[in-house]
Design a protein around this nucleic acid. Structure first.
Length: 477
RNA sequence: GGUGGAGUGGCCGAGAGGCGAGGCAGCGGCCUGCAAAGCCGUAUACGCGGGUUCGAAUCCCGUCUCCACCUCCA
């Protein structure tokens, strides 16, 4: 079955047919590194990580490019603002936040993209694109001497096609500063340097010193790294307009075929309300990751379909934790049972057909998780029935699925810091106590056995008696 | 005003004309010294009102409510 994905431009499910068979070029709008990452940023990056992993599993060679917007109005404004970061250069501020994003991505097991270009490194390509637009009659330098260059929306009849809007119906922004625009809908391709802006934030150009507008970077960098025609363009739903609409207009007006498919991920709300910088209700990555293990956060973010709104509320991570534990526990139990029987336990199979069908169908992670849990259930039943052949099969399937989703509990990525002398000492002590408890149980001295179990529980160590012996684990790991 | 999306059981969350996805919580049972884990069983669910159909959560008409975007946004 071919992979199908929902194309926002045509507003329908389409089969993926890459320009070059077997290869997929994917451009995703990354963050503007002006403040700390929040859940929405994590979700967005995770969505494309999952797309990339699935397409990779399906045999495609995926080139994933996710940009970093490291120059923009707010970055300059925040750097200039007096406060804690007084005196910090705009580029230092941008880099500081970029590192925060990278760190959060890493903790969630989001694989680094094939390449992560910064806007400031492609200014030349942007200028070339702007020049092509001017030459084609779709852009003009402002006549007011500001050094701005605008895209001429009225010169491009299909402007608005991505969001199915007619230019005439668009409400002009209240705060729109008409400056040298021919039409309020025109947008800046190039912004002339203003007096109070640092010289380090300006580049020479045929239209005077200045810096690129926001939208132009994606048009220029997607073409630079993926070609003037590429397969998939992704980004948050909130970027559809104006950002993606403008990208589409610029690139196509300049004669580039641009993206074959437009994919938009749903936003994250908090208690039903949109999370946004202006509302100040953002849940930041650091707080979020402090609430649950990163692998559980990943499970939580991946379990909802990527196009749905994800509404975060208190307790959501606890549910995700319980669901994830079910999978982890099965993998532990099955490994133990197979090893005792002298059967290897690291075999990973291909994923079940139903799981593949779900992900082929517009990356239906909810369907995929349903299959994963079904498989765990039948695997557990086989364990109880001591049917090890079936256990081995189910385990191999679960491993394959969990690896595609990036939530394999055995992945060193998620390994706790519990290695080294301290962990060894803890293990020795716990195992000594477990021996004592076993002696007590054998002598039917349950009071003593339970006292040991309670003491360990108070220290955050949970016990589980299984036919194969007692297992212990540290809560939250 | 324009454009798009959503309302599903105690909660989360899929599905898109016909055997009630899956998870969490609950209840009953099995297992267990007791737990834990696991297994089995367990639900008058589809915003409201009409209609089409042998059959509607799904299609049609109407209606209510919520959300997003319309030049800061992942």
């Amino acid at each position: 079955m071919p992979v199908r994905l929902y194309d926002s431009l045509e507003a329908r499910l389409r089969e993926l047919e890459p320009l070059v068979p077997g290869e997929v070029g994917m451009y995703v709008c990354g963050p503007t590194v002006q403040s700390s990452p929040h859940i929405g940023h994590l979700r967005s990056a995770l969505v494309y990580d999952l797309w990339r992993r699935w397409l990779g599993y399906r045999g495609y060679r995926v080139t994933l490019v996710r940009n970093v917007t490291d120059i923009d109005d707010k970055i300059l404004a925040f750097a200039a603002k007096p406060g804690d970061t007084d005196g910090e250069q705009w580029w230092a501020l941008a880099y500081r936040y970029e590192l925060e994003f990278t760190n959060a991505y890493n903790r969630l097991g989001i694989l680094p993209p094939t390449y992560e270009p910064r806007a400031t490194a492609s200014v030349q390509q942007m200028q070339e694109l702007i020049q092509r637009l001017i030459d084609a009659g779709h852009a003009y330098p402002a006549p007011d001497g500001s050094g701005d260059v605008y895209f001429d929306t009225l010169s491009w009849p299909s402007y608005g096609s991505l969001t199915r809007q007619a230019s005439a119906d668009m409400v002009a922004a209240e705060d729109a500063d008409p400056r040298g625009k021919r039409d309020p809908r025109d947008f800046a391709l190039w912004k002339g340097r203003k007096e109070d802006e640092p010289e380090s934030a300006s580049w020479p150009s045929p239209w005077g010193p200045g810096r690129p507008g926001w939208h132009i970077e994606c048009s220029a960098m997607s073409a630079r790294y993926l070609g003037r025609a590429f397969d998939i363009h992704g980004g948050g739903l909130d970027l559809r307009f104006p950002h993606h609409e403008n990208e589409l207009a610029q690139s196509t007006a300049a004669g580039d075929a641009f993206a074959g498919y437009w994919v938009h991920n749903g936003l994250v709300t908090v208690d039903g309300q949109k999370m946004s910088k202006s509302l100040g209700n953002s849940i930041f990555a650091a707080d979020f990751l402090a609430e649950a293990r990163p692998v559980v956060v990943r499970y939580y973010l991946a379990a909802t379909h990527y196009r749905s709104t994800l509404d975060y509320h208190q307790g959501a991570l606890l549910e995700a934790d319980a669901a994830y534990e079910r999978i982890r526990t099965f993998l532990d139990r099955s490994a133990l049972a197979l090893e005792r029987a002298g059967v290897g336990s690291d075999r990973a199979d291909t994923v079940p057909a139903a799981f593949a069908d779900a992900l082929d169908d517009d990356l239906s992670t909810p369907g995929a998780f349903a299959v994963l849990h079904e498989t765990v259930r039948t695997g557990n039943a086989a364990l109880d029935a001591r049917n090890l052949d079936v256990v081995a099969e189910r385990r191999a399937e679960v491993l394959a699925m969990v690896r595609v989703l990036g939530i394999d509990p055995g992945d060193p990525q998620w390994a706790s810091t519990g290695a080294g002398p301290a962990a060894d000492a803890l293990r020795a002590l716990v195992e000594r106590l477990l021996e004592e408890r076993q002696e007590a149980r054998s002598g039917r001295d349950f009071a003593r056995a339970d006292r040991i179990r309670n003491d360990l529980a108070e220290a955050g160590i949970a016990l589980e008696d299984t036919p194969a012996g007692t297992q212990w684990s540290i809560d939250g790991e």
